[in-house]
């Protein structure tokens, strides 16, 4: 580990003589910096997407796993009695931490997105909802359903399993896709930098020939290109990462606008994660350029 770190630092410190032997090439330099910057910018968003999807999956998983809903549909005159019976039954059910009937205002709020504000809920045959908070181990839904059928015939238990699992699976897939995006971005960066390095090597064929004639080894020649492209990728990725983080920071706040997309971002220590992108881009550039350089040098001989 320490050896690798030393090698990395010596690469960045570089061999100024080897570096000078190859003339600066403006086009490939700009192309590499731009590519690394753009890819880093996209990588920040892919990382944010992946983390946000992870948080969403965790939140849905935690919240929905600990709660269930009991829906009581009964004639208006029996509603209160059945609700009270259901509450009593739930209070004696193992695995139920708490149970309470939602107030009319709470039920109105739930329906508001579909019916608009000021819904006269009292005059409508709306079922009564009971929120059930579970202990960590949860309750036995099959047993509870059997008891409810016997004592509160109008009650329907929804333990959220039906729609919780697809949601968590979707969030998990989204997190996976975020990871795939980061890998694809890394591969695309490697491909672009390889092409730029090959262009630079081809443009400097005469320089390489002269260096060979005076006894320079392939590693010496490659080092000049590798160091240059690694530093360019590091610089471009650093700029792209900072730009990406600023863009994420400027997104509307989740608690103000609501919704998933506005929750795209980093929280707490996760703000440090994007700083991994520039060194990662440098490592990708190092590997891509070294591979391209050694291959080209062999082909040019």
């Amino acid at each position: 580990m320490i050896g690798a770190l030393r090698r990395g630092l010596s690469l960045l410190a570089g061999d100024s003589q080897a570096d000078r032997a190859v003339p600066p090439t403006g086009f490939t330099a700009n192309l590499t910096v731009f590519t690394a910057g753009a890819m880093a910018f996209l990588a920040v968003f892919a990382l944010a997407l992946s983390l946000a999807a992870g948080r969403l999956a965790d939140r849905w998983g935690e919240e929905l796993a600990r709660t269930s809903t009991l829906r009581i549909s009964a004639p208006a005159e029996q509603m209160a009695a059945q609700t009270a019976a259901a509450i009593r039954l739930l209070e004696t059910t193992p695995g139920v931490a708490a149970a309470r009937a939602l107030t009319a205002d709470e039920q109105r709020d739930l329906l508001e997105p579909w019916f608009g504000p000021g819904l006269p809920i009292e005059s409508l045959p709306v079922p009564q909802l009971i929120e059930i908070i579970e202990v960590d181990d949860g309750f036995d839904p099959t047993g509870l359903r059997a008891r409810l059928q016997a004592e509160v015939p109008g009650a329907v238990l929804d333990d959220h399993t039906r729609w919780r699992e697809p949601l968590i699976e979707a969030a998990g897939r989204l997190r996976f896709l975020g990871g795939v995006c980061i890998v694809l971005i890394a591969l695309a960066t490697a491909a672009m930098i390889s092409l730029a390095a090959q262009a630079a090597l081809s443009a400097n064929a005469q320089v390489i020939r002269v260096l060979r004639l005076v006894g320079a080894r392939d590693a010496y020649i490659a080092r000049a290109f590798v160091r240059r492209f690694t530093l360019r990728a590091l610089t471009g990725a650093a700029v792209g990462t900072v730009a990406g983080m600023v863009a994420i920071l400027l997104l509307p706040r989740a608690d103000v606008a609501g919704g998933f997309l506005t929750g795209l971002g980093f929280q707490g220590w996760a703000w440090l994660l994007p700083f991994v992108i520039p060194p990662l881009a440098a490592v990708v550039a190092f590997a891509a350029t070294r591979s391209a350089a050694l291959r080209c040098l062999k082909e040019q001989s």
Binding site: R212, L213, V214, G215, A216, R217, D218, A219, L297, K298
Partner: peptide
């Protein structure tokens, strides 16, 4: 080897 040729060229001034 390629490195071998490079080392030999260091002993030849052209």
């Amino acid at each position: 080897t390629r490195d071998g040729v490079a080392m030999a060229r260091r002993r030849i001034g052209v």
